[in-house]
Design a protein around this nucleic acid. Structure first.
Lengths: 224, 224
DNA sequence: GGATAAACATAGCAGCGCTATGCAACGTCG
DNA sequence: CGACGTTGCATAGCGCTGCTATGTTTATCC
């Protein structure tokens, strides 16, 4: 009997919020409503207020990250694939700093964690493959390795996104950290270096005008 | 000729802001002013508005971190000292999550970066000592190593502070990452493990009622 | 085609950061 | 030592925020 909600309005609100975030414009209830052409009530109908909208924007961010990581090829070399996932993660974060920040802004209300879990699943799969291929020691727990790989990478990326480190420092240090973790997981040093260097050679980091995998021009990154 | 500003009022405003932050209370201009017993104008007289106050709170956070790291003993083993600095950093961040978050909230206005630099200086000195003692390869750049050590640790700590990872995961993964970085810097694996394990054995992490170095009861940490 | 329940608009609430105005307090002078 | 001038500081009010009470519209079901 009830009137069905308009999924287009819901999507438009999330998209406009993400867009305004990326353009570094203020994201207020009124600005969103007027940009979409609805009244302020819509944010309550669809998201139960601004905290709920932020939760949806974060979820959208993890979904986009998942899509991005899903595009990373299945290299024959499992360690190279892990390194490529790391590069893609860094590129994505640096290309979309405002949304990256929002994703990890945990002052906001929790959201459905499944989208975040899904985004990181390739890392666990990659570590599992590296163990299976004999590149990592059998004693390595794939999920644990994925946490270390992601957690350390997140540290560097978030510092770049926050303007504390420059992109050049990310390009300098991230491969070194990855190599260190791969070797610690049991990979042979020479092979680890080769796999990581191959992945980092092809990065578009530092080219802020690069067109990303979705065909959209990257958010310009500018150090504060 | 002018009337001199009251440094006590200035300090009280910063302290109350840090205290309210730690208690997870809202930090508003009006709440600060009424808690200190002054009018809202004081925030403008001393900090030129709320952004300036946040900058001062962040600076205070880095100053406290510096004091904490300065208490780490000068072990004879330079790698053990680096590991102990890492433990102290993690303990400090986990004990004061709200202030830690504020310190790295780079949406706020920039502040005098010298306090942040001063806080991290021990890491650079430590890496330099490790190179000097022959534990790290001579080719290792101390400042670069410090960035990797800090950046990766910051990643894990910020995820714990944000409620994404649990403290148990920090205790599990941080030592492994440290060992990986030390070995990659040229330290002998056995010695690296010994130094790191010695440092992490004595941590009070996971004991939320621990009294910190300043004699104050730690901010209770509760996962969101 | 009327009943019903949700979508949605309008208007107004309290609270926010900020500022124009005016007075009070202090160090520097004649 | 008292007038001056500069700054500290209080009061009141502005425009904005997120939010909600009220009433109307709209799509679905019987």
């Amino acid at each position: 009997m009830p009137r069905p909600p308009s999924q287009e309005t819901r999507r438009a609100l999330i998209d406009v919020a993400a867009s305004r975030l990326a353009r570094r414009e203020v994201v207020t209830l009124r600005s969103l409503a007027s940009a979409v052409g609805v009244s302020t009530i819509a944010i309550y109908t669809y998201f139960d207020g601004m905290p709920g909208l932020w939760a949806s924007v974060r979820q959208e961010g993890f979904e986009r990250l998942r899509e991005r990581l899903a595009l990373v090829p299945q290299y024959r070399d499992p360690v190279r694939r892990l390194a490529a996932l790391g590069v893609a993660y860094a590129e994505h974060g640096v290309a979309h700093p405002a949304i990256y920040r929002a994703m990890f802004d945990t002052t906001a209300e929790l959201f459905d964690a499944r989208s975040a879990t899904a985004a990181f699943q390739p890392l666990i799969d990659g570590a599992l493959a590296a163990v299976g291929a004999g590149r990592f020691a059998r004693s390595v727990d794939p999920a644990g390795f994925a946490v270390r790989f992601w957690g350390t990478g997140h540290g560097l990326v978030s510092l770049v996104v926050g303007g504390v480190l420059g992109i050049d420092q990310l390009v300098d240090h991230a491969p070194k950290v990855a190599i260190a973790l791969f070797i610690a997981a049991g990979d042979e040093p020479q092979r680890a270096r080769r796999s990581v260097n191959a992945a980092w050679r092809s990065t578009t980091l530092g080219n802020p005008l690069a067109v990303d995998q979705h065909g959209a021009l990257s958010e310009r990154w500018s150090p504060k």
